[in-house]
Design a protein around this nucleic acid. Structure first.
Lengths: 336, 336
DNA sequence: TTGTAAGCGTTATCAT
DNA sequence: ATGATAACGCTTACAA
């Protein structure tokens, strides 16, 4: 049979409440009994029952993460598993567990969230996506259930979130290219409606303007999806522009397509930078430079934000901005 | 305040035990009261408290999965997240939740397993790896704690496991190449000690022998790690052999390296097949054919096996073999 | 068929 | 500083 707090109490010849107190480091306990109890615990190999504890405390120390069901790249984009690791590592330091669940569709997803938030299984949820007018966000807000979202939500005030500074990421990148001698830089993005897309375009634009370089529509192509073909087609359009020496993209797949076009047309000295630092970029020849969005840190801070709220202590911080990192590879070309 | 079973009982004017019975579909309950209780449940929006239920039942319906901490390719190999999805989808159909945790090192990993198996948080564990003389496996066996492993363990008798038939996967592949006209086929593997490596080599060998084709050491290169450079070096050795028209590898990264060599030397009509169906293989030019190990199904059956054991019903099945699938791409060349 | 009440293993309140 | 004991919200004998 499992050893319970009663067994420990008996062994140490104290009441269960006393054992519970040493377990929670209650200060009002004498050194002698504390020691005696600890010995009993060690001797019996006692481990508190998580369920009983949760029931009594009315908190489970379990976080629920909901993975987006619609993400086509769930399996190929290391973002998800990497940020899951970031969450896990942080959560462990605070004694939290994490459950995850995939859903078949939006409805299943919402139902799952309803379930775990109503059956007291979890203390808070981590959303790995934010979209416009998100049903789940609305639901959680109505219910006043603690949650955090990775990605900037519409309502940035009352919600906990973590995200990259996409404006800055692209601004810095384009500036760096300019410093390296590039004067005409193309931009390839996809799905204009997304916050992320708009921010990255803004960063690009701001950098050009601040350097008093040409900024006009012929330098920009927006596609409807992140894939290689769209990258290829975009490159075809962009290179009609005379003197283009660099192209920035908002995803490695787009960059991949651009590279194919560059190769097909035997172009030289074209700088090319992708986003997300995926394995495909790394293993191309030449290898494609990319912006790492630091998924692990995003996960880390998401967990941190949520747990801080749950424990109701410390700063009332509502969000974290995680810095991106340029990974320079073969396609980071200096012109001069 | 949360609505509890008592509220429902009061609303339906019955005892809590009655509510509990309709919840668990106990047959000894009249249709009329069942209906009344269900109405009360709907009206109040009642959802049973998972913790209280677990405590009473002494089972949590939570599975714990332990990710290998040493896997370098954890983030780039879609295997992990894909099989996690397979588990999740199956587990949900049976009303189970899944927790996961990453560890910093072996010690942290073992400690985590000890923790969750001792604090009654989970009913069973899923191991995403098996290695020789595995501490965690030993621990779980000693403790008689239910678990399943993905990958064939040393002791295949007393342990639940799921795996591919690696002998068959490679045997079928090599046979197919032979049918397509290849007579001299090279093999590139890594980490010979692994069961997987040995099985795939055996499949290769058997196929050659069964077709009465040449099988000798010059056709085989074993490396110490799965990476592109090792693939490249292996190809350099293999192509000293006259008339080689195909190379099979045990990983896409090895295949990638082989392809680089093939390109560097302007070779034509070389069939090349990788393993794991990763994104890098798909996005090469030419795209590399690969064996998909069907990670989702591995996860699915792992969860199924474990849950069957936990519910103590149905077949006493101890393992599942999951079929692999060849994904033909550009590098699947027919000679005649 | 339904109700009563004793657990399940903790924590927390109230005494002492 | 420590001990009794009542929650926490459910399940499950045992009664009726």
């Amino acid at each position: 049979m499992k050893v319970t707090i009663k067994d420990v109490a008996k062994e140490a010849d104290v009441a269960t409440s006393t054992v519970s107190r040493v377990l929670s480091n209650n200060p009002r306990i004498s050194e002698t009994t504390r020691k005696r109890v600890k010995e009993a615990i060690d001797k019996l190999g006692y481990e508190p029952n998580a369920m009983a504890r949760s029931l009594a405390r009315q908190r489970t120390k379990i976080l629920g993460i909901v993975l987006p069901n619609e993400a086509k790249d769930l399996f190929t984009n290391p973002f998800f598993i990497t940020s899951m690791q970031g969450m896990s590592l942080y959560a462990q330091t605070k004694g939290y567990y994490i459950t995850y669940a995939f859903s078949e569709d939006d409805e299943g997803e919402l139902n799952h969230v309803k379930e775990i938030t109503n059956n007291n299984l979890i203390d808070g949820v981590i959303l790995m996506r934010s979209r416009q007018n998100d049903e789940i966000i609305n639901y959680l807000q109505d219910k006043r259930f603690p949650f955090v979202v990775i990605g900037r939500p519409e309502d940035t005030e009352s919600i906990l979130w973590v995200d990259n500074d996409n404006v800055k990421a692209m601004y810095d990148l384009v500036n760096l290219l300019i410093e390296n001698g590039h004067k005409k830089i193309g931009f390839v993005g996809a799905i204009e409606e997304w916050n992320m897309s708009q921010d990255r375009l803004k960063g690009y634009k701001d950098a050009l303007i601040d350097s008093k370089l040409d900024y006009h529509d012929n330098l920009i192509v927006q596609q409807n999806e992140f894939n290689a073909k769209n990258g290829y087609d975009a490159a075809k359009k962009l290179f009609k522009e005379e003197g283009l020496t660099a192209i920035v993209t908002t995803d490695d797949l787009l960059a991949l397509g651009v590279q194919e076009y560059v190769k097909d047309n035997n172009m030289k000295d074209i700088a090319l930078i992708g986003f997300n630092n995926s394995q495909i970029a790394q293993y191309q020849k030449p290898s494609i430079s990319s912006i790492d969005i630091m998924a692990g840190r995003l996960g880390h801070y998401a967990a941190k934000l949520l747990i801080s709220k749950l424990e109701g202590k410390g700063s009332k911080r509502k969000n974290y901005i995680v810095d991106t990192k340029l990974v320079e590879r073969d396609t980071f070309i200096q012109i001069r």
